[in-house]
């Protein structure tokens, strides 16, 4: 019985993760500007990967393997924002018409 409960918890969390990845890919094709696409990829990088790997932790129970998977989640949550930050830096530095899309400076947030 307890095994079946564990299985269903795993299945629900894994489904959430897969749903996040599907949303990510949908956003990759629907959104028009690269920075918006980066936002879509960030959903999959943080929420999707967290859900999938957490489901694996629940299905494996407490052992050395689940500790390594937990370290994997920590690592990805540390590094994937940095990669997205650098991708946006490439975009700002290479696009000559960036000012059409993004507003710089202190007047950010005003209308």
């Amino acid at each position: 019985m307890i095994e079946w409960i564990r299985f269903w918890i795993t299945a629900v969390i894994l489904f959430c993760g897969i749903l996040a990845f599907i949303l990510e890919v949908a956003g990759l094709f629907r959104l028009g500007f690269v920075m918006n696409r980066m936002h879509a990829s960030g959903i999959g990088d943080s929420f999707g990967l967290g859900c999938v790997v957490f489901a694996m932790i629940i299905s494996s129970g407490l052992n050395l393997d689940s500790l390594k998977l937990f370290l994997l989640i920590l690592f990805m949550w540390l590094t994937s924002p940095v990669s997205t930050h650098f991708l946006s830096r490439i975009e700002v530095n290479t696009n000559p018409f960036i000012a059409r899309y993004v507003r710089f400076g202190t007047d950010y947030g005003k209308k």
Binding site: F21, S41, D45, G48, L49, T84, L87
Partner: peptide
Amino acid sequence: PRIIDRILCINMIGTLVICTIAILSQ
């Protein structure tokens, strides 16, 4: 259309491959 899209896609493929390996290990 530009190089940034390709790098972004490589990054996303990397994330998916990591998830795939994690599932395979279980």
